[in-house]
Amino acid sequence: MSVIAVGPAVALAGAGYRRWATYRQAALAGVFVNTVFGVIKLSILLGIADSAGGTVAGYDAASLSTYAWVSQGLIAVVMIFAWTELADRVRTGDIAVDLARPVDLQLSWLAQDIGRAAWALLSRAVVPIVFGAIFFGFYWPTDPTAIILLPVSILLAVCVSFAGRFMVNLTAFWLTEIRGLVLLYVLVAGLLGGHLVPVQLFPDWLQAAAYATPFPAMVQFPINLMTGQATGLRALGEVAVQVAWAVGLLLLGRLVLSRATRKLVVQGG
């Protein structure tokens, strides 16, 4: 297994950052949309808390607000929406060029994705969170373990999310049309990851189903550190689960990629 060196990885991450940083209008539009959806989402959650007598599944009004705004802010960072860049390269055959490069395909795309996430964090996460903190109640985390783990957890969420998207995109080697599959993946990931409603609010059977998937590691776990749902040992435990999913899915992705490459070599794509 070839490993990517630190120098090229930083350069690739920088390229990912700059490539996305050119779309300023789109970023502005995205922030606006994320904020409007944040207001709607929070209103619904507060409506639930109101009917339930103030708190619901361990969330009070302030931590629901934090949940709503952080989950909206992380949309673009974790990129839980459709991403078919890699699949497009497979479809057009440009993937052969990427495979011929002297860097590891998966890790170089991961490095670029982390650069993209860094730009998204600055351009698309900060505004909804600040907006929410100013105009709505907001719970700020106090647990030192949670605060220290937060950046690590966000980075891991990006890695898990990338690993999942990477594999979905690789199916383009076998399927001619993956739009339906990508849409399906986005919907399931958004629901089970706890993007629409916190996973803690799910009925038990749905919670069990969600925790059996990597999706909470992409969305719910970093949010838990912000809302005070995960502190101390539980925070450490959830980050450990994220590490396991990131490593496991990335390794699985490499396996799928090697199968795909063999198909490309044998059948000429």
Binding site: S51, A52, L191, F202, L206
Partner: peptide
Amino acid sequence: LLVLIEFVEVYVVFHQVDALG
């Protein structure tokens, strides 16, 4: 499926409470 998943959100809400607004 899109409608089903959207509707799960409504279902989750009423798993927690009997009335919304």
